[in-house]
Design a protein around this nucleic acid. Sequence first.
DNA 1: CGCGACGTTGATTTGCCTCAACGATTGTGG
DNA 2: CCACAATCGTTGAGGCAAATCAACGTCGCG
Lengths: 193, 193
Amino acid sequence: MNTIIKEIFQDTVITEDESDLIYSKLKQSSLNKGEFLLKANEEVDDLFYVHTGCLRSYIIDLEGKEHTLQFAVKGWWISDYIALYGRKKIKSVSHIECLKDAILYRVSKPDFDKLCRDIPKVGHFHIRKMELAFASFQNRILENLTLSAKQRYINFVTAYPTIANDVKNYHIASYLGVTTESLSRIRKEISST
Amino acid sequence: MNTIIKEIFQDTVITEDESDLIYSKLKQSSLNKGEFLLKANEEVDDLFYVHTGCLRSYIIDLEGKEHTLQFAVKGWWISDYIALYGRKKIKSVSHIECLKDAILYRVSKPDFDKLCRDIPKVGHFHIRKMELAFASFQNRILENLTLSAKQRYINFVTAYPTIANDVKNYHIASYLGVTTESLSRIRKEISST
DNA sequence: CGCGACGTTGATTTGCCTCAACGATTGTGG
DNA sequence: CCACAATCGTTGAGGCAAATCAACGTCGCG
């Protein structure tokens, strides 16, 4: 069976025919560090599976500051979910930037929806993925409400050590919601303990 | 057809047989203001559909402070999603409190999963619900990163005017991540403009 | 009426931001 | 392979939004 299908669906058992059908909807694309998968105010139709590399999605606020919504590494999906999943169809609000040379598999939302309908296993897989994401979103909101910047940083580095290595500190800062200067001071404080 | 099934699934077309099957898994329960659906450190197995009334889920941090994760009114589902959807099965981390006399319909997660499998429409309905929730979670994270407490309050009241009426100010404060004192000052400032 | 829950106000503190300058590191062209 | 520039990270001084601590109105209900 196709190795990328096997990778994406992990321990879900997929038949040869199903694999072929899914594969026919995937389009491989590669991206180099610094390139963009998406910029704000574009049409969004696709989901992207990250096979290798590292990306981040972020928005730029009215004052021109960046705020990182999500990092994505091997095994993760990334897109502009606000635009793609929102109640009304809108243009993209996020930028998606490649932080480390990446190989992606793209699938359009309509194709993906159809796969979920035609192959129930895919639908169930998707539901499970969404549920996990749901739980971790709640966790992130909770951490934002509950913890100090220092503790959020420690948690981030603990939970995602590989991402912490792959990305710049100011990317992490903009994910945690602090300035690079503050993060620098936090790191200094931690290293001296 | 059963009116509650019709209400829950809105514009999804459900047959009589399907309706009966779904209904057989639902258990009605009512809750009075001040009562709890769930407290921390309990088993969590169920999802709750809110037919009438108003509830909130919140966690209590190490310092004893409350942080509201979610409000739920008619048409919403509520549970301890961190416990119910997380990677590993854990006891509840949240409290779910009734803020306004409520009528709920409870369904166990296993039953709900089975319904999603046996009735594809239900699965697709669930996916769509999750996608919408996904988008609004991203939005909330974004607002937390981007906006001032004042602006977040204005957005909350604008987006959920009925909830804002049904709940105490300190519930809203703990949802926005500010103290009641700060929210009070914010409200004062707004009223004078 | 009186008590408890809720909301407001004031004084002070603090965590993080802003602005500015300066090291350190990385990458690129000569 | 070095030189230099750009990018990234650190440090300092000062400011501000929101937290903390404390006290006091106000409302609803037994």
